[in-house]
Amino acid sequence: MSRQASLVDADWVEAHLDDPKVVLIEVDEDTTAYDKGHIEGAIKLDWKQDLQDGVRHDFIGKDRLEALLSERGVGNDDTVVFYGGNNNWFAAYAYWYFKLYGHDDVKLLDGGRKRWELDSRELVEETPSRPATSYTAAEPDLSIRAFRDEVVDAIGVKNLIDVRSPDEYAGRLLAPAHLPQEAAQIGGHIPTAGNVPWSKAANDDGTFKSDDELRRLYADAGLDTSNDSIAYCRIGERSSHTWFVLHEILELDNVKNYDGSWSEYGSLRGVPVAVGDERGTA
């Protein structure tokens, strides 16, 4: 992939509003945002109701995804463009998830909902109806997904990138500061993980920084791109944003997203934890 293949801007979206082969999908943390107004023609995926299993602590599998996208009218040969609030965190998560299940043509709207709103572009309340399809998903591509045991084995061996805010990394906060701090797990980070907050890869308006700025960011953070990398955050959405930067924009193929992230790791028994601003040792 590349920036050109994986990102579109607002002008591109406006030029394709009537293109039936382009499916705009809004994915938000605040799942009511879509109902208050969305880009014309966009459908909604609720990252929790639609994409999470509901029983297992995991996202839905291949069969349920096929049923969901068939019912929502998404075809295998459609160009899917994700956008959302929170600087595209959950849109990036959906992008990663669609890639995992083999959708060929997926893109992110650069800057997401925020850039669109700050530009005072049009939002509508009408919901479109798309004819049902017969969607077929691929088996999950586990080259872009890391599970717990691989992460534990990666301590001191692979690049671990904690993309949460410095206060979450150090253990001073358990969740982003717009959410109540009621999480039950302990604070801290995976030992040897470096802290490169996702926000350093984005401008204030939510658009991604330039390729040169992004390369410099991770070079300055000491990322050895010849080694495998695993990104994580709290629940896997901000790390999808960083996975997008590394794997899609900068075209590094040895990068995984650990979507279990701190909400899983910080609740495990028998694993090491580091607190404070230093990386800690293996």
Partner: peptide, 29 residues
Amino acid sequence: AYVRLLDRTGEFTAEVPTSATGHFRFFAA
């Protein structure tokens, strides 16, 4: 509007859009 919360080093910590009444809230440290 979008309100961002930056920590003592200027690093992003959180961001919320304001409500219909212009309000916002953060649970900080």
